[in-house]
Amino acid sequence: MTAWIILPVSLSAFSITGIWIVYAMAVMNHHVCPVENWTYNVTCSEETARKGFPKTCCTPQDIPLISKCGCYPPESCLFSLIGNVGAFMVVMVCMLRYAQVIEHSDSCGWINTSALVCGCINALGLVMVGNFQVDHAKSLHYVGAGVAFPAGLLFVCLQCLLTYRIAETTLDYWMAHVRVALSTGALVSLVLSGIFFIHESFVLQHAAAICEWVFTVVVLVFYGTFTYEFGAVNNHTMMAALAQGGHHQGSGIIMGAVGKGVVMGCGAHSLKSPGASSTSTRLNCNPESMAIL
């Protein structure tokens, strides 16, 4: 078991807790209405609610979409921080997961690479969403959201496929089943959010906001499940990714590493169940490779 298990747990805990704090601040500051409110008016008279209590009269501008919750200070400052830090941790998780899959399987190349690209695009979208508030830079905010949400959904779907492809134990398959359930929930909630959002009905737009919250929390929980695999990460994990990159650059570059003990991917290779903490070692080379050298 390694300290890397802290990364996905921190991503989920920090982001989920953070966005709910942002929501609570927005409600208390009368910037949005609480999720339990389903009654909206076209216009409202002067607000009479006491400071520190939710609004008593709500307009469509007060629908508690995640973006609306982080639109005005002081909660917008925390919202931007969550978007930036969360995006950084997402990239770290995606890169480590990419390296781990390479370490365990050579037959998932395009799926693994696609998942890495989707994860990085998701992170880029999060940065745009967090730093360009919807009421102040609507176009850029919507571009970021339009990038982050589909990329995040595609990432979790590809990771479900990868989990099945490299599964070796019963626990590995159970984790794959859990991730399928989470990705299904993410898909349904995102589709419903999009369908409800385009309607003019205030009730449906409120339902869209709830579906958006569900989607975000489910995807963040999905990221947290990588704790299962990251307990087995060691120094060989990142080396596997580096060796893979070197292999694609040609044998001339790789052969230059012979003096360092790396010959065409021939060396000590860690083999383990994705969720296991114990490793076994084999010599990952064959006579044909040695003959070529």
Rank of each mutant, 00 (worst) to 15 (best):
H177D: 14
W20I: 07
V93H: 04
H136L: 11
K55S: 13
I19K: 02
I16M: 07
Q244M: 05
A186H: 07
N84T: 10
Q205R: 15
H248Y: 14
I166R: 04
G86S: 08
G144D: 07
Q205V: 01
G152S: 08
F215M: 09
V233P: 02
D172A: 05
V134C: 03
F196Q: 05
T281H: 09
A148I: 01
M95R: 04
M92C: 15
H141S: 06
H136N: 11
G261K: 08
Y40L: 08
A26M: 06
G265D: 10
A123W: 05
A232F: 01
V22N: 06
V263A: 10
I21T: 12
L7S: 04
K51T: 14
Y72S: 09
G144Q: 06
L182T: 02
S107E: 15
W4S: 13
M290V: 10
N235G: 07
I16S: 05
C266P: 01
M239H: 08
L171N: 12
H236N: 14
K272F: 08
N122T: 07
I63P: 01
Y98N: 11
Y72I: 13
I82V: 11
V101G: 04
A257T: 09
L153S: 06
P60V: 08
W38L: 12
L190C: 02
T59C: 07
L271K: 10
P64W: 08
V188E: 04
I66E: 02
G246S: 04
S67N: 11
F197L: 12
A209L: 06
C71V: 05
P74D: 01
Y40A: 07
F155R: 01
S278G: 04
V188I: 15
W4L: 14
S278W: 12
G83N: 06
V233K: 03
G267D: 12
I254Y: 13
N112F: 06
V233C: 09
L204E: 11
L190F: 11
W110C: 09
T48K: 15
C285A: 10
I210D: 03
Y228P: 03
F226Q: 09
K68P: 00
D106Q: 12
G86T: 05
W38P: 02
G152N: 06
V147Y: 00
H141G: 06
